[in-house]
Design a protein around this nucleic acid. Sequence first.
RNA 1: UGGGCCGUCGUCAAGUGGUUAAGACACAAGGUUUUGGUCCUUGCAUUCGGGGGUUCGAAUCCUCCCGGCCCAACCA
Length: 558
Amino acid sequence: MENKEKTNFIRNIIDEHNRTGRFDGKVHTRFPPEPNGYLHIGHAKSICLNFGIAEDYDGLCNLRFDDTNPAKEEEEFVHSIQKDIKWLGYDWEDRLYFASDYFPQMYEFAKELIRSGKAYVDSQSPAEIRENRGTVKESGKPSPYRNRSAEENLNLLERMKNGEFEEGEHVLRAKIDMSSPNMLMRDPLMYRIKKKAHHRTENEWNIYPMYDFAHCLEDSLEGITHSLCSIEFENNRPLYDWFLENLNIHHPQQIEFARLNLNYTVMSKRLLSRLIAENIVSGWDDPRLPTISGLRRRGYTPESIRNFCEKIGLAKRESIVDMALLEHTIREDLNKRANRVMGVLRPLKVIIDNFPEEEVDDLEAINNPEDETAGKRTIPFTKEIYIERTDFMENPPKKFFRLAPGREVRLRYAYFMKCEKVIKDKITGEIKELHCTIDPPSRGGRSPDGRKVKATLHWVSARFAIDTEIRLYENLFEVPNPAAEEDITDSINPNSLKILKNCKLELCTKNLPVQTKVQFERLGYFCKDDDSTAEHPVFNRTVTLRDVWKKIQKRNKK
RNA sequence: UGGGCCGUCGUCAAGUGGUUAAGACACAAGGUUUUGGUCCUUGCAUUCGGGGGUUCGAAUCCUCCCGGCCCAACCA
């Protein structure tokens, strides 16, 4: 790592706190997911921020599940979330917490606020509460129950807790200011009755704390110093501060930052859940999704995601990061680490007329030109080989350097090869195979006479090829900001997944373990999928290589 | 006159009264190359949403205006 100073407004605030001694130089953050979905790259931003800051300031970062709503939360998600954070490379050590573990203490705090006349049980209906809250431009009206005695409030709350009332009959509210211009300060709800079994406390509670009451207490109880959250909680900060001030307990500093948006995808759990529920994608780990599990399956590495989170920076203004930056970080990582291999996606058979039928010529290939320690391997050359259909054109346009009738190219690590004849289907006109000749002295791909060739093609021996399924991915959406569309399902990219069944891979890929990442030379980075079996390997295309020829083609089309 | 927040290159983003206004991605042009990959070189905001003002000096301070986002779930 270079010695580039990380700088952003949150680090500036922490530096200032350290200068003034606000938290005695301590830094203690937390990542507080609600277990109601899988983590996505937006969460990764927050994880890298919270764990990263703790690391850099010699502090600590807790993992805390904010499980205050049993109607939405599930055990499955608490497992997937832990798996993903660990995979990203972060460690909360023994600091795994659950908001639900604090329910008894929260309940005591609530009673304390009642006793000091700062909370009351409201018995209006949900509709009345909404009505009397007013609007952003008109102030609200106080509840008729606002001045119940502490005794009555305590009694009612206890009975709410014990399940004596039905959902919606009563709530506990903070007594703040019904005419505050900040809607959140108009006697916000602290507890609501929910007769739902909680994934951890089961049926112990009939009331559950609301976010605003619960979250500040969770932070306070854990001794958090800097409570980092996204920008839409800015309006909640006065309330966060109000509870802690009125309870007179440890008071962390809440700081808000802009959440991550990426173009051509969606980041909200609501939208992601919908794509899964409607089977538009195969699940939370569909490789087209920006979920951590999807990216992992697609072939992204933890390092690339962490680098990405580093590169996007941190600020308060809302922004949309270009997908090209994510792709850049995975190419950058895999370029150094992935072994090169040859694979043909859309095979075109080539017969080498001047090569003996049965002969196998073992050629030497470099595994990774960026990493000498990756070593070398041999690849078999035979009379019949496959090349990429897109590497041959009968009537090549100007800037096409590859194979064409009468033209000579190099086969990577093999020979210079000249196209002599094109065999077509008499009826359809489709090109069936090519007849070519090689130049024996060019063995290894060298050019003893100094003759130049404009292209080098990848190829695979027909006799030794491994038949493989390859899944090609593009952006899930056709529009840069799908969340802004009326209905996201209208802008799904019909080409977001393309399955190629008849691909031919180099022999050495035969027994690679699942999740292995390789570069198919000239094509891109690929990752062996979980769906693979011994007889039927499957690879996902993580990302293509940068491709000048594709750019030229695009330009010419316009 | 509800309140809160935000506006620096195509996209992110440093910058906190004196800098030639960082850096990355993208883009463009060259060089190297047995991957049209990688790598290397070069270019890419006389200007910081706009107008006024303070100052010897403003992206940074003041002021007005314009634009965007958030808040009226018993969600988080």
